[in-house]
C-alpha cells in the first residue's frame, strides 16, 4: 500500500516539475478551439452568458430568491466548471493516447493540462459572472473571501476528480456516455436556478445532491454574507476522501493505463 502511494506522489511531483508543459499545452488547446473565429475565447464568455440569461429570463423559477441573477450566475459558474471537468475527464487518456504511448510524461501532466484548461475557461466565465453580480446591485464585501476560499478548495479537489474519472473512463469506455447523461440531468437536479423549499422532493434533492454544497460554499457568502462553515466542512471532507481514492488509483494504475489504450 505504501508503494502505491509513493508511486502516486512521485508521479505528481514529476508532473508539477513539468508545469511549463501543461500550462503551454492548455493555452494551445484553448487557442486551437477558437482559432480562426472572430471572437476567439470570448465565445466561452458568451456561451456562459447565454446559459445564465436563458435561465434568468425564460425559466424565472427564482420566486422567493432574492437577487435571482446573482443566484443563477454564481451557481452556473461553479456548475459549468464542475460539469466541464468531469465530462472532459472521462475521455482524457483516450484523447492523449499519442503522447501517452510516445513519451514518458507523467500522468499528472495530462491531469494538470485539463485542470489548467478548465481554469482558463472559467476565468472567462468569471468575468461574465462578476459583471452580472455587480450589475444586479450586489456590492463587493469582505465576506467574499469565503467564496474565494471555496473556489480554492474546488480547484484543489479538481486534479483528484480528474484522476478518478479519467482512470475509470479508460477502463470503462461506456462511462463517458453515463457521465454525459448524468451531467445533463444534473443541470436541472442541482440548485442552479431553483431554490429549496416548496415540494419535499425539491428539498431532498437540495439536501442529498453533493453538488449543492460545492455551489453553496461559493454562492452563500456573495448572496447573503453567510460563512458556510458546515458546507465547507462537508466539501473539505469530500475533498480529502476524493484525494485518497485518487492517490490510490494513480499509484496503482499509472503504469497500466498505457496498456489499455
Amino acid at each position: 500500500m505504501l508503494t502505491i502511494f509513493r508511486n502516486a506522489f512521485s508521479d505528481i511531483a514529476a508532473g508539477l516539475r513539468m508545469r511549463r508543459v501543461w500550462a503551454a499545452l492548455a493555452a494551445e488547446d484553448i487557442g486551437d478551439q477558437h482559432r480562426r473565429t472572430w471572437l476567439g475565447p470570448i465565445w466561452i464568455l458568451l456561451n456562459y452568458l447565454a446559459h445564465v440569461l436563458t435561465f434568468v429570463v425564460i425559466f424565472q423559477r427564482g420566486k422567493g430568491v432574492e437577487d435571482f441573477p446573482t443566484y443563477v450566475s454564481v451557481g452556473m459558474l461553479v456548475w459549468m466548471y464542475i460539469s466541464g471537468v468531469i465530462t472532459s475527464s472521462a475521455r482524457l487518456f483516450i484523447k492523449e493516447e499519442s503522447l501517452i504511448t510516445g513519451t514518458k510524461l507523467p500522468i499528472t501532466v495530462y491531469v494538470m493540462r485539463l485542470t489548467m484548461e478548465s481554469l482558463i475557461k472559467s476565468g472567462y466565465m468569471a468575468l461574465g459572472c462578476l459583471a452580472i453580480v455587480l450589475w444586479s446591485g450586489t456590492s463587493i464585501e469582505i465576506g467574499w473571501l469565503w467564496s474565494l476560499a471555496a473556489i480554492c478548495l474546488i480547484v484543489a479537489i479538481t486534479p483528484a476528480v480528474i484522476i478518478i474519472v479519467a482512470i475509470a473512463g479508460t477502463y470503462l469506455p461506456d462511462l463517458q456516455f453515463v457521465i454525459g447523461n448524468v451531467m445533463r440531468i444534473g443541470l436541472f437536479a442541482t440548485p442552479i436556478f431553483w431554490a429549496p423549499g416548496g415540494s419535499n422532493a425539491r428539498t431532498a434533492l437540495y439536501k442529498y445532491n453533493p453538488f449543492t454544497y460545492f455551489l453553496e460554499i461559493v454562492r452563500l457568502p456573495i448572496m447573503k454574507g453567510i460563512e458556510p462553515v458546515n458546507s465547507l466542512a462537508i466539501c473539505a471532507i469530500t475533498g480529502v476522501t476524493v484525494w485518497l481514492i485518487a492517490l490510490f488509483l494513480l499509484g496503482k494504475f499509472r503504469r497500466q493505463i498505457i496498456f489499455t489504450l
Partner: peptide, 21 residues
C-alpha cells in the same frame, strides 16, 4: 509527435522541447 498545425514553427519547437523535458 506533439506538433500542432495551428502553431508557428517557432512555437512548435518550444512545445516539442518542453515535451522532451
Amino acid at each position: 509527435l506533439g506538433f500542432r498545425k495551428e502553431a508557428s514553427g517557432r512555437r512548435n519547437i518550444v512545445l516539442r522541447g518542453l515535451i522532451n523535458g
